[in-house]
């Protein structure tokens, strides 16, 4: 499938992945530090392991950034 992650198109050799699987596939080592926007909607965290990502989807990984001091 072809999906867009963080604005960049990527081909993944799978027809479908859950968000959690995608985060793992993308080697995000701390999924707790990421919020996910799926096709323009902020995704509730509890849906990370149920929401399927399929061909043509757009996904944004938004990282917590707590610094500032």
């Amino acid at each position: 499938m072809k999906i867009t992650i963080n604005g960049e198109e990527e081909t993944i050799e799978k027809d479908s992945l859950t968000i959690i699987e995608l985060l793992t596939h993308k080697k995000v080592d701390m999924p707790e530090m990421v919020s996910v926007e799926y096709n323009g909607e902020m995704l509730d965290r509890e849906k990370f392991d149920t929401q399927a990502v399929t061909d043509g989807d757009k996904v944004e990984f938004l990282y917590f950034m707590g610094g500032g001091q």
């Binding site: 707790e32 530090m33 919020s35 926007e37 902020m42 509730d44 965290r45 938004l62 990282y63 917590f64 950034m65 707590g66 610094g67 500032g68």
Partner: peptide
């Protein structure tokens, strides 16, 4: 809102009635 980390930064502005920080980041990270 502003947040930085190493070489990265992020910012957004909340005004009443529009999306807030929690709309993206639901709650504190563990």
């Amino acid at each position: 809102h502003g947040g930085v980390l190493r070489f990265d930064g992020q910012t957004m502005t909340h005004v009443p009635g529009e999306a807030c920080y929690r709309c993206i980041f639901d709650d504190l990270p563990p």
